[in-house]
Design a protein around this nucleic acid. Sequence first.
DNA 1: CTGTTAGCGCATTCAG
DNA 2: CTGAATGCGCTAACAG
Lengths: 343, 343
Amino acid sequence: MSTARLRKRPTQDDVARAAGVSQTVVSLVLNDRSLVTISPQTKQRVLAAIDELGYVTDGSARSLRTRKTLIVASLIPDITNPFYPAFERGIQDVADAHGYDLIAYNTDGLRDKELRCLRSVQRARVDGIIATPFQLTAEDFSPLAESGVPVVVFGELASEPANRPFDSIFVNDAAAAGELVAYLLDRDYLPLGMVADAAAHLRREGRTTAYQRVLAERVLPQAELLARGGDPTEAGGYIAMHKLLAGSPLPRAVFAANDMMAMGAMVAIREAGLRVPEDIAVAGFDDIPVARLLNPPLTTVAQFPEHLGHRAAEMLFARLNGSVTGEGRRVEMPYELKVRASA
Amino acid sequence: MSTARLRKRPTQDDVARAAGVSQTVVSLVLNDRSLVTISPQTKQRVLAAIDELGYVTDGSARSLRTRKTLIVASLIPDITNPFYPAFERGIQDVADAHGYDLIAYNTDGLRDKELRCLRSVQRARVDGIIATPFQLTAEDFSPLAESGVPVVVFGELASEPANRPFDSIFVNDAAAAGELVAYLLDRDYLPLGMVADAAAHLRREGRTTAYQRVLAERVLPQAELLARGGDPTEAGGYIAMHKLLAGSPLPRAVFAANDMMAMGAMVAIREAGLRVPEDIAVAGFDDIPVARLLNPPLTTVAQFPEHLGHRAAEMLFARLNGSVTGEGRRVEMPYELKVRASA
DNA sequence: CTGTTAGCGCATTCAG
DNA sequence: CTGAATGCGCTAACAG
């Protein structure tokens, strides 16, 4: 490998020389501007030379000149939560169709990692970004927005100014969670507990407050049974459920802040020698792809992550190609209660 | 947004002007070369100006100059298979530690998409790539390798020349699958079926042939019960299992080519009114994060994807920083049989 | 229709 | 210790 000669990659100049034309002509052939026409035979000569030399455009040079990188970025908390791969896939497919590559950042929902990503995004000069931030505020995005980089935010931000300089897409978590909780109560799952992660992000708090709100509305003979624990992961759900199982009264059902936590809760329940849903029913949130494959299949609220990513990317590209301008749009996406066997 | 003035991003020239120094000095301060020393006070002035103007280095320009993009690429079939997010996460964390960003490509295991990605990689001038190809041959990587871009391949390639110009990392699928099949037979799960995807890639064929090999070795009173169907996804597993359920004899257990297919198979089995593992036991391959959370928990072979990604990235960066040179290394990674309740 | 020319923003010689 | 000058490879005016 060290002995192998590194063939210096050919430039447009090399191609031009080989084809006996000027470098400009090579560029014109490559970019096929309709402003000027190239004679078919020179075009052929150029293409032949390109093929022969194995020329391929230098992205850095082109970017420096055009101020476009043909890269978009996506900022998500953790690709390991199955919700996000689906989301990313939705973005990726749209980006692909537009000839764009996708840089992915995992932030773990930590503010400093989120900020680092934003800075990295500025350096890399990506043409646009789709962000799923947990801690960032609208102001954090100002530098990007001001320098003309379109931003699409998934979800709500910590501080939402009236005139946001970016688009956003969201699902009404509070309404969705409220509907799910109401359903569980209608099924007489009392007392109804909830497991949530330790950090109270605005993002998922809609779900928690919805639980509390609906409980309060119905004036039920039960105290709030809210256990928090760890990350919004399977491990966190396991920990939180443990707390609930150690307390009294035992819940007849639990609502988990997301499907991963619901899975952790199910494990904890079984380890305690109890059955789902006979002893304790379980419901989640997200409808990640495996939710319906579980045993029992998980009752949850579908957010259609792939569709979300798809739509978010479409909004981004609408800005990138200039077909949409003006102030930020807010697009609300639908959710759907998925009643399955787990609750 | 359209009305907002797009503040043109400041350049080193602007910073230099503001700080009353030359552009060179700005560059020197930024890159902190030890060759020349900058007086602390000018350094302060420059840093102050940078902060004030909100200067951030232009990645394209720097790349053009340094021939480095600080980006690595990862090529995987489908981020939607939980094996890969974990793999990517492993890569991502190492890349992050080296100050690198990660571009992810999904190829769906299709040759033309894989090739497109490779071309894109060349354009984008990423500094290195970790590929999990299904169809590409060693030759397809030659242009990259020749132009000095380090390549790490996960798995085996369709054609393996003696002196590969790239590193590779792999798990001995054949041995792992053989061990699992042997285990299943030891438990007297007879007849033992297998569900696999329709396309016979070299990549997963090791698992299929291992099944056939061990069966043959033991000279068992059973015919081969191999059903293929669809993609290597849950849907594919469901389809393939359906075929097995429609045939005769029914298998007493099935080995699925990967965990996603195993999950699909489990659904099919339950829909047929049968139980896992009482009527039909199920085993998978990969040990994706949800495998142990299933009900019953899935017996499978662990490949430790996050660890694989981590290691692959380390190999890549060893090339990038020049601490490793010479011909391609082949690194075999461990697997582990995970016996759980499903088989 | 084709070629000449001029930078994009930065890192890096080489002189002061 | 600092500044002036150069060119990375490319696109896009502009002139022939």
